[in-house]
Amino acid sequence: MATITSDAAAPGASPVDGGAPKRERSATRSRLVLRRFLRRKGAVFGLIVVVLLYLMAFLGPLISPWGYAEPDYTAFLQPPSAEHWFGTTKIGEDVFAQVMRGLQKSLTIGLLVGVISTSVAALVGALAGYFGGWVDRTLMWVVDLLLVLPSFLIIAVLSPAFKGESWLLFVALLAAFSWMITARIVRGMTLTLREREYVKAARFMGQSPLRIIFKHIVPNMASLLIIDATITIGAAVLSETGLSFFGFGVQPPDVSLGTLIATGTDSVITYPWLFYLPAGFLVLFVLAVNLFGDGLRDALDPSSTRARKRATKSEEESE
């Protein structure tokens, strides 16, 4: 058995092949992602702003002397001042308190919708892609149908039904109409992953289809799903504010950035703080989320950008 020993020693026999230098490389793997991410100034800016805004939305009301629905009868339509940091509305409500409350609502809705809809998309897309056949055709037909009807329209039509209901119903509706495009992408990826040899290997060892989906397919789309959830948060905030702007979303007395902007729009010239402050926070948040998502994509999924791909190609060639 001389050969066995010589061969058994083989992979470790030479210093370049052994674990030591490689180990170091893998330890830096997450650091590599981090470094790629940090290199993008926009992405870092986005992350910081997103975190700050979430903190502000939940901590802001605590430090504000005024409640969001608590009018100051001594100050109507006052510009920003030491007393009312963002000014007041025409019935004397504190704009800072209102913006913080609206931000809280919009951001919470965005986060929930992002997580829920991405989960739905992952499930539907993976099922359609993995099983194919009639499962695929049915699910994709539903996707097509929902894409034909703009979500804005459906939720607007349904809005009379959730007047007076919990805002969570509104979240559910938003989530129900924002998973379709991601589901298509997930389905496409599943079609590729299904043909991957490690999935085939699992199938040939007798692993059940659902286990394969949850053990091999979904985890391997994790980066895509994380990126997508991020982007969906931004999109959901936009949908929410848009619907609330027309009164089809968050209902009074509750406020969201959309309802605040709606009230502020008419007085944009006369009382600009009523419009620019909520609008500014909204734009800042969506911009930050988008920049963050884009940076995340670059860091987690470097092959998605060609420039990086070319760099890695030449790296491979020379490694």
Binding site: G242, A262, V283, V286, L287
Partner: peptide
């Protein structure tokens, strides 16, 4: 990025 982050009802105004 900026344009895509501004909702139309804000952009119009």
């Amino acid at each position: 990025f900026v344009i895509l982050s501004i909702p139309v009802f804000v952009l119009g105004t």
